[in-house]
Amino acid sequence: MTILAILQVLVLILIVAGSVLAVWLKDLLASVIALGASSLLLALQFYLLQAPDVAIAEAGVGAALTTAIFVLAIRKTRRKEEE
């Protein structure tokens, strides 16, 4: 098992952890930040798999624009999720 494979497995575990955190958190702003971090790690995973085009698109759309749109939507509505 090379160092690159270990790095890929680590990044995949972090992606799953960020996604679970995004669903689990009650503070919606923190949830959006967790989703953005997960998306950025997904871009890193694309780069490690030698697809830099997809990595740039994922980092631009997934990490930046989606986070910005969610932050704007939270600013217009409530921040805390209700039971």
Partner: peptide, 28 residues
Amino acid sequence: VILHGHLTPGGGFQGGAVAASAVALLLV
């Protein structure tokens, strides 16, 4: 990224998305 789209990784969509993220930062 847009200008060197035919030489390096990237292209029109990727460069446009990166530039639009600057608009998002300005808006926030």
